[in-house]
């Protein structure tokens, strides 16, 4: 059942004229079929067959081009590394990150489609919006800068820059940038890691780091990072080996 009989297979050496006649017949048939469809009242409008059109729904929150909202919570996604974005989409779908809005949108999408969506936003190289001025005190910002760039060796807290690139702009394929993000978003992620509502594959290195941070540390590093503008794309790599074991990262 379902196999093509040998008699219907094209004969070898068929002439170009035969192919031309076949092509004409095909287009004539297409034209007639289109006419019939139009007569039957079928809509003639077509959606653009692009990934951008398919995921245009995401623009409503992530800006027309995947940039962070100027104020508030919603992160930029344009220019973040593809494997990182793919992991996050799966985390939302599979309950390792908590956002009812995100989960309801990706709940029934396949891995292949989520990978394609991630690659689309990762490749968007865009100038990001200017960041709002920080209301944090200079002392808090200085504390945040120290944590981000040098860490706190005495308490075993590595610098953000040790993994997220010296620029903090992230490294392809899986290390996200920390720049160009709203303060509340960074704050929210560190809090979610602390209380276990944001999870990644074990060993969950960011959860370990977040749990080592005190509330003042979280506030300081969030405030300072939110003053750092993002470049259009993450660094191409290779990424240095992280100081902690991280289950979410591909082997270097």
């Amino acid at each position: 059942m379902g196999t093509v009989s040998s008699s219907s297979a094209p004969k070898t050496g068929s002439s170009a004229a035969t192919r031309k006649v076949a092509a004409v017949c095909f287009w004539a048939w297409q034209w007639i079929a289109a006419g019939v469809a139009a007569a039957a009242g079928a809509p003639s409008a077509r959606a653009p067959d692009t990934i951008a059109a398919r995921v245009a729904a995401c623009d409503a929150c992530h800006d027309a081009a995947g940039r962070a909202s100027a104020e508030g919570y919603i992160p930029r996604i344009a220019g973040k590394p593809a494997a990182y974005l793919y992991n996050q989409l799966r985390h939302f779908r599979d309950g390792r990150r908590q956002s009812p809005a995100m989960t309801s949108l990706v709940a029934h999408q396949t891995d292949a489609y989520l990978r394609e969506i991630a690659a689309h936003y990762a490749a968007l190289a865009l100038p990001h919006r200017p960041l709002p001025a920080s209301r944090a005190t200079p002392a808090v910002l200085a504390r945040g800068r120290t944590l981000a760039l040098d860490g706190d060796r005495a308490r075993g807290i590595p610098a953000c820059a040790a993994c997220h690139d010296a620029s903090l702009g992230g490294v392809a394929p899986d290390m996200p940038g920390l720049t160009g993000l709203p303060r509340d978003y960074i704050n929210g992620q560190l809090g979610a890691w602390k209380n276990g509502t944001r999870r990644a594959a074990a060993p969950d290195c960011m959860a370990e780091i977040a749990r080592a941070l005190g509330p003042e540390d979280v506030a300081a590093v969030s405030a300072w990072l939110a003053t750092q503008p993002a470049g259009p794309l993450a660094a191409p790599g290779p990424r240095p080996a992280p100081p902690l074991r991280c289950g979410t990262l591909a082997a270097p």
Partner: peptide
């Protein structure tokens, strides 16, 4: 309000989404 994507299926693996308008 909330938008949505039809399910990703073998017959429609890359669905088009409806944007949420609750913020706008």
């Amino acid at each position: 309000l909330h938008g949505g994507f039809p399910p990703g299926t073998a017959g429609n693996p890359r669905p088009f989404g409806m944007p949420p308008y609750r913020l706008q």
